[in-house]
């Protein structure tokens, strides 16, 4: 298979397959979680908890007082990586074209130079987080194969995308094909790895906010 054939497969059937598997996996995981159910809380709430789950979904994105100082690398690395990656994924003009083709939605993109900086920042942040994971005793204790896998799955599309954009490796077509394939691998495995937090954290934060909200505590 040549680089071109690979690219054609990746952009066509490969993409459809990966997106379908991803959607299927996400639905499956949500069912897996929600089917476990939750018993109604019989203790009368101090106040209505309506809205507290949603509020926590938003507020948990910010570090609580004092925490930024205690764990600067985790927070800053986390922010730079997530924001940088989001810019690269959703505001790079060729990506927007792809989304339009897939879902029919479109929105304005950002200049390539900005996207370039964002992608590079995300790559650097991921590397910093990786080193942090290797040296911090707490993270080392918690880290298992799944964490390394999640890191690699995220890193590959960023690096191949960056390389393709800058024509870093000789064969552009092959680099682009690898970029798309690495995204597809990420999509297929996302529901079954730690990366699923991208979806499940909305549930987790909502539950947390709701449980505490009934008691009159904003979390």
């Amino acid at each position: 298979m040549t680089g071109l054939e690979l690219l054609i497969w990746a952009r066509g059937p490969g993409l459809v397959l990966a997106v379908s598997l991803c959607i299927f996996g996400v639905i499956l995981r949500f069912i897996e979680i929600l089917a476990l159910g939750r018993k109604a809380d019989l203790a009368p709430p101090r106040q209505s908890s309506a809205g507290s789950g949603w509020r926590t979904i938003a507020t948990r994105s910010l570090p609580p007082p004092g925490m930024l100082r205690r764990a600067p690398l985790t927070y800053l690395g986390g922010y730079v990586f997530h924001i940088g990656m989001a810019i690269a994924v959703f505001f790079f003009v060729p990506h927007i074209e792809l989304f339009r083709g897939l879902f029919g939605l479109r929105w304005p993109g950002l200049p390539n130079s900005l996207v370039d900086i964002a992608a590079l920042a995300a790559i650097v942040a991921l590397l910093a987080l990786l080193i942090g994971r290797m040296v911090d005793p707490v993270k080392r204790l918690l880290t298992g194969a799944g964490d390394w896998l999640a890191w690699a799955l995220t890193f590959a599309p960023l690096v191949t995308g960056y390389a393709a954009f800058h024509h870093l490796f000789g064969n552009y077509t092959l680099t682009l094909a690898l970029h798309i394939l690495s995204v597809e691998l990420l999509l297929v495995l996302l529901p079954f790895t730690k990366l699923f937090h991208a979806f499940s954290l909305f549930l987790a934060r909502w539950y947390n906010g709701d449980i505490a909200g009934r008691k009159g505590v904003a979390t």
Binding site: R38, M67, T74, V138, K139, A150, S200
Partner: peptide, 26 residues
């Protein structure tokens, strides 16, 4: 004791270690 909230919590943990910084025992 495992219900939907517990499953959503375990599914979401990214092993960032931040919880250690909040616990006086750590």
């Amino acid at each position: 004791v495992i219900d939907a909230p517990v499953a959503s919590f375990f599914a979401s943990c990214v092993h960032c270690g931040l919880c250690a910084e909040t616990c006086l025992f750590y």
